[in-house]
Design a protein around this nucleic acid. Sequence first.
DNA 1: AAGTGGTCTAGACCACGAG
DNA 2: TCGTGGTCTAGACCACTTG
Lengths: 249, 249
Amino acid sequence: MGTTQLETVPEPKYWHLRTVLSEALDSEFSVGEILPNERDLAARFGVARATLRQALEQLELEGRLQRRRGVGTTVAPPRVGVAVGTEQHAWPGAEGDAWEPADCATAAPPAAVAGMLETRKDEQVHTVRRSLVTNGQPVAAELLYVPLSSVPASAAADAASGAARAHAVLQGLRHLDLEGQDRAVELGSARAEDAKELDRLPGAPVLVVTTRFFARGRTAAVSVATYRADTCRLTFADSGGVEIHHDAS
Amino acid sequence: MGTTQLETVPEPKYWHLRTVLSEALDSEFSVGEILPNERDLAARFGVARATLRQALEQLELEGRLQRRRGVGTTVAPPRVGVAVGTEQHAWPGAEGDAWEPADCATAAPPAAVAGMLETRKDEQVHTVRRSLVTNGQPVAAELLYVPLSSVPASAAADAASGAARAHAVLQGLRHLDLEGQDRAVELGSARAEDAKELDRLPGAPVLVVTTRFFARGRTAAVSVATYRADTCRLTFADSGGVEIHHDAS
DNA sequence: AAGTGGTCTAGACCACGAG
DNA sequence: TCGTGGTCTAGACCACTTG
């Protein structure tokens, strides 16, 4: 005691490091550029690798960095804006829908989805897998649940499974009058299956968008879409339809 | 070689642990219950504390757990649904708005905000701080930027600063005709200031909602709201206005 | 004062991608 | 094969809350 503390920083090292690195990214690096490896960076800043990694994780979460095992850490481009609220009154699969139907199965949905669909436990529903790709990068994976009361099994009977069947189910939805929809966004972590499709590790942060589609006074379908939280920004254009674009820095 | 691997699990320990704990939470714990401490849990599962913590972090991110330093780890209640899209055509501060004005200053906004407001660099704008509290828990912190061209400085001149001034600026907005709005949601990490207000540590994951308000063919105001990602779910009711509610499990 | 979660260290080994 | 990020360990100390 008695020694004057020049810097009484209750601020954690990793947080300070994050700030320093963030500023360095703004001024000294350009998009796509690769950073020195973690061991070198840690040595350069005089911290343990784990501490350096904590700072990098923050920056990756904020969409500033992109890290790939076996490759390295690169400066990420600005997040992609993905429109989620423009197709105000359209069924999934309507014209202008950029989602790519991948597959379709018939199975019992998770309990939470069954609750929204008001189906009995273990009641089977069409389960359509779709994916969204922009600029060659996978951005989101979706599971669309459609009860047989919305689209009868016979409508999809001619295609056993696969993309053809997915198309058939989406086609079947269009025969219904869409009365409205209801959306929720929350943070989640990618399940192993989604992670693979999104080219991320399991547990990667994702934005989960749950949409209910209403027809005939009931919930006619439920969509659960998981978006890569590091690379995209969800946009909702209530009116005016102007895009939000972020400036660098 | 030659030995048959019973469990060729390329699955990381922390991920497996997350699954095990998640199932235990579903079946053996109830909301608010406190878990054994990290050292005990780690010992019980035969892993290092750091590994156990990685699993807990995942579960906290998913809103399943709540951890408080000096206190312990508790089972979190289901996420709170926060309506974000219902006040379709209303200015912030309109009737029914649950946000609590806290303060107001006049300062130059961050570059990204200045870009959206189309104000000159270093041009001063009203900066209103508001906070949203539900069930006694802080849920979100907002910064609302209003250029002087939308609400003249004179409108807020009678209150030097503080909540009174914030109210005056919000009042001033109501004189304009709201033509539309434009919203974006993305993942971020809480800055030190927001973290404090949200009762979290710096770097905590937050959902950042950026809203542009249009009037007179221009951007009349910009709101940047940060919501605790662990405890809340943003809801957008495009029509029908029915609440999405998740069932347990 | 005791107990909790939060930070940090200095190592080790593994899985993956590219040459 | 080599270099990268990802996982994991076994410790230590700190900051905070509660009794």
